[in-house]
């Protein structure tokens, strides 16, 4: 049985569609009635301070946790009922480093390719092409342990793209990186949106990473407090900039925001 929601004429299936998502850890509420959609081929920033629920949301979208309340659909496929079909369309870069440090770059990527049923020549071709895209060509045989934080992130991005996903989820992908590495990774992802038409959900607490044309989704302590184009969110909150809007939405002093920025 297929669990696909088809769209009507003229209606485009959302890359990601969340409806009424709630989640708690025992008595601790992590997410409450969160609903938003992401269109294919767009860059959406999921903004929230630490503890806002970004990682929980990622764990639900990637089916690490079961969805107890609400529904999550990826290109129309329900994550709970057709997780395989949904997960085939998603590439994920987790906040925690997930490379196997004892293995080489190529071994790490081959392993991931096999987890998506890609093997042999096809896998080797994809790995070579993606290492090129993330500017890590010639590093195939290096141990993951020998890479810098930024290089590891690049490999993780290549890994997330190996199975040609249509939606890329990145959870705080630039945390702990220097400014140059952050800018490089962000530029790579934005270019992928432009050239490959991949939809991206970029979770961050760094307001500097938001650009004027982006869509933003703002979480505060598990609640969705704003969503839309940057200009819309700024206008609705009566702020002068997205930094100011984020500050107002989180009810914190501007100096607090300044501290969050590198």
């Amino acid at each position: 049985m297929q669990h696909v929601r088809t769209s009507g004429p003229g209606e485009e299936v959302a890359a990601l569609d969340l409806a009424g998502i709630s989640h708690s850890y025992g008595p601790k509420r992590a997410l409450h009635d969160v609903s938003f959609s992401i269109a294919p081929g767009t860059f959406t920033v999921l903004l929230g301070l630490n503890g806002a629920g970004k990682t929980t949301l990622f764990s639900l979208i990637s089916h690490l946790y079961g969805t107890r309340r609400g529904s999550i659909r990826i290109f129309g496929h329900d994550v709970s009922r057709a997780s395989g079909e949904a997960l085939r369309r998603v590439g994920i870069v987790f906040q925690a480093r997930t490379l196997d440090l004892d293995l080489s770059v190529h071994q790490n990527l081959s392993y991931h390719a096999s987890l998506h049923g890609i093997g042999g020549h096809q896998a080797r071709q994809r790995i070579a092409a993606l290492l090129d895209i993330v500017n890590m060509q010639g590093r195939q045989h290096d141990k993951a342990r020998s890479l810098s934080g930024g290089q590891m992130r690049r490999i993780e991005i290549a890994r997330a793209l190996l199975h040609r996903p249509s939606l890329l989820l990145l959870d705080e992908a630039t945390v702990g990186l220097d400014i140059q590495s952050r800018a490089g990774i962000l530029a790579t992802i934005r270019k992928l949106v432009e050239t490959e038409g991949i939809g991206v959900l970029w979770a961050t607490h760094l307001i500097d990473e938001v650009e004027d044309g982006d869509h933003v989704v703002v979480l505060r302590q598990g609640d969705l407090v704003a969503t839309g184009k940057v200009a819309d969110v700024v206008g609705t909150s009566g702020a002068s900039s997205i930094r100011d809007a984020f500050s107002r939405l989180n009810r914190i002093e501007t100096s607090g925001i300044a501290e969050m920025s590198p």
Partner: peptide, 14 residues
């Protein structure tokens, strides 16, 4: 869903 750029419409769903 927010509007989708026209140039990628042909790419999805895969």
């Amino acid at each position: 869903a927010p509007a989708m750029p026209a140039k990628v419409a042909a790419l999805t769903p895969v």
